[in-house]
């Protein structure tokens, strides 16, 4: 179309190149291809974030407001109500960390759903992807990075509000826990993004899941404050298994994998045990979404 290109050049630019299209991935492994496409898809999400940062800004303002508002809500609670040595800011911080990560992960499916609706997903589906799971992997990487940024901000803000600061090992343990909860919830949301008919339905599911799971966890109040039936639900809620060990880390600089970090109505659970529960949750979700993804990715 341009005058500046001679017909001969055009010819070589436009001519089909069977060596490029016919042989399966010359000189590069399937894994290399998977990494290439996953990185490119992740890059797209970060470019979007950079040019439209409002979700990230809101995602940082919101937990901030939770911290201040909930903190003020219980500021006159009797000393020692949440345990010895425990002010409410300290109690709240782990709840807000986990809840924020959870909310972000729960929304992970929305961009994919919009890609489906606008036809952009078709662009990905007609491409010879090494595996279509790269679409899932890219969203997961993106959400996890975002959650880490949010977590860092919340930890900083909580320290400022008087929650104190976990030590370095504690911080890496928090990172591990956030990673595990985000992985499972992101996978769940992506599974729904492929299974549900449209974004209205996905938003409805997010809506009915988000806050109820917050209140049915130990984010805002300890287990022994709750009615018996809610204790049971909170003890089945994966969020509780992320919140309680982080809370323990906030209180105890000294801990080991075998430290008992929480008690549910049935058992005392160690730090290692909690990690196993979260791993189990992830495994369960990943298994459950397999058929949904395979239906679309086959």
């Amino acid at each position: 179309m341009s005058q500046s290109v001679s017909p001969n050049q055009i010819n070589s630019i436009l001519a089909p190149n069977p060596s490029l299209t016919q042989q399966s991935s010359i000189g590069s492994s399937a894994l290399g291809n998977f990494v290439q496409e996953t990185l490119a898809l992740t890059k797209r999400l970060f470019i979007q974030l950079q040019r439209r940062p409002s979700t990230l800004v809101a995602g940082i303002i919101q937990p901030f407001m939770w911290l201040i508002l909930f903190g003020a809500l219980f500021s006159k609670a009797p000393q020692g109500l949440f345990g010895n040595d425990m002010n409410y800011a300290k109690f709240l911080a782990p709840g807000i960390i986990v809840f924020t990560a959870f909310s972000g992960a729960l929304n992970a499916g929305l961009p994919v759903m919009f890609d489906r609706e606008f036809g952009f997903l078709n662009r990905l589906l007609v491409a010879p992807l090494a595996s279509r799971y790269s679409i899932v992997a890219a969203s997961t990487v993106y959400i996890i990075v975002l959650s880490f940024v949010q977590t860092a901000v919340i930890i900083g803000a909580s320290a400022f509000l008087g929650a104190g600061f976990p030590n370095a090992i504690g911080l890496s343990a928090i990172a591990l826990i956030v990673f595990l909860i985000v992985l499972g919830v992101t996978a769940l949301s992506l599974g729904l993004a492929f299974a549900l008919p449209g974004h209205i339905e996905l938003i409805a599911v997010i809506f009915v899941t988000n806050l109820p799971l917050l209140f049915a966890s130990t984010a805002l109040a300890p287990l022994n404050f709750m009615a018996g039936w809610l204790q049971v639900i909170a003890s089945l809620n994966p969020l509780t298994y992320a919140i309680e060990p982080i809370r323990y880390l906030y209180l105890n600089g000294d801990w080991a994998v075998s430290s008992i970090v929480m008690s549910n109505p049935w058992a005392n659970i160690s730090f290692g045990g909690v990690i196993l529960v979260l791993l189990g949750f992830d495994a369960l979700v990943l298994l459950a979404i397999q058929p949904l993804l395979r239906r679309r990715f086959a």
Partner: peptide, 21 residues
């Protein structure tokens, strides 16, 4: 279906990776 937020060159970059150029 082009991502409105991406520049043309960025979209082509994505496409290139999807086709493993």
């Amino acid at each position: 279906a082009i991502d409105k937020v991406l520049t043309g060159r960025e979209l082509l970059g994505l496409q290139a990776a999807l086709y493993h150029i």
